[in-house]
Design a protein around this nucleic acid. Structure first.
Lengths: 222, 222
DNA sequence: GTCGCAATTTTGAATAGTCAAAATAAAACT
DNA sequence: AGTTTTATTTTGACTATTCAAAATTGCGAC
């Protein structure tokens, strides 16, 4: 059975490859799992020996079929646990990520299934990230972000792709959560600033970087 | 922070010392944590260095105050998780122990508290073992309540821990007094409802809060 | 086409936890 | 008291994971 360290590496390779077949650079992986680059290299070689990843020295890593299977299972656990923490235990949106980080390696497949049932087989977690299905399917619809979408049009937030506590707290504070309706009232690329407005409230300024983390879709659509 | 290995050793020392001040022999501890005796010795010496246990070479181990604190917290997690798995996820009684063994090291104190509240601050786990309080008190003679006991089993009411007139009248009206035989036919934590049935009569619905005030013991026991 | 930088890999060493097997001490029995 | 049994500790070695720092390589700038 994969140790939680192994699970962690695989999960981050999956997250960083972002659906594509592209190689994930070592530096990025090392940063994601919070180790020095040398450690990532050592670990990746070990994972390659076990057939969980393909390592192209000096170029990067990619999951094998088996590695992807494991990674998706971990991701499913992570996101279902987050959903549970928010919807059942009513925990603070911003805190659940770190909790789930621990729990994802401790919960069995049976508990996972029962949690899934208890929650009504949700499709996304509270951040709007898709939950991989039991069979390992991960819906990968692409959305516009507040940094790229058209302005002055009614939108709904579908997802927030940033897990840091600071960011999530900021988002929560301004009510920028999946489901929220809003529109972009102004976007100034040179100033690096995007202004959004909720139907009710007043203008909220965002950096382009932050805006790029918030995925939206046109209001009134499946 | 104590690693999960450390937590495990401490928990088993607590369990094996069984309330007394007696020294736990190394062999017993080694067997409990499933390592060879030499490993237990090595580990216990390390724990002693950290002030978590007192080691009397060739005689045994005993928890220090700090060690006991940690051990009780782990035990509390273990038993609350078991309770959660049985009562909320409806898992098989026999399986929950191994699950809890993993989860007890992954769940934070905050999740623990919320779980505790969700379950109605139970005094015992589904096996009837007492759950240490948040302050680290472990009562030895604890009864299960209608909110925490196993279902579909013959029980006798031993005590009603609520003195308000309304409650006592309600209890009397339904014949829920010490000595009464009954069993729990259904328990739905999410709905906050417990249904009991006396041998003679029909179903009586109780709130979890009310059920938690009624102490029971297995029928036919001292 | 060569140079230099940034990313990667290698090397050597550390920590936590484990086992097998030899050494030792305590307890138990003549 | 002397010997056997049993429990415990010691020793040496191994795995998984990590870091620091030196060595290497790929690639883009010139």
């Amino acid at each position: 059975m994969a140790t939680s360290t192994v699970e962690n590496y695989l999960k981050h390779v999956l997250l960083l490859s972002d659906g594509s077949e592209a190689l994930v650079p070592m530096g990025a992986l090392a940063a994601a799992v919070a180790v020095v680059p040398g450690t990532a290299t050592t670990m990746v070689k070990a994972l390659a020996d076990e057939g969980l990843v393909e390592h192209q020295p000096r170029h990067g890593v990619r999951l094998t079929g088996e590695g992807r299977r494991v990674a998706l299972n971990v991701l499913r656990k992570h996101r279902l646990v987050e959903t549970f923490l928010v919807h059942v235990l009513k925990m603070d949106w911003a805190k659940v990520h770190d909790e789930a980080e621990q729990l994802e390696h401790a919960i069995s497949d049976e508990v996972l299934d029962r949690l899934d049932a208890l929650l009504g087989h949700p499709q996304t977690d509270p951040h709007g990230d898709p939950i991989p299905s039991r069979q390992g399917k991960l819906s990968s619809q692409v959305y516009a972000t507040l940094a790229t979408c058209i302005t002055e049009r009614s939108l709904r937030i579908v997802r927030v792709t940033e897990q840091s506590t600071e960011f999530l707290q900021f988002a929560e504070q301004h009510g920028l959560q999946p489901g929220t309706s809003l529109r972009v009232t102004d976007r100034n690329l040179t100033a690096g600033l995007v202004t959004v407005r909720k139907p009710t409230g007043r203008a909220i300024p965002l950096s382009i970087a932050a805006a790029g983390k918030i995925l939206v879709e046109p209001e009134g659509k499946g």
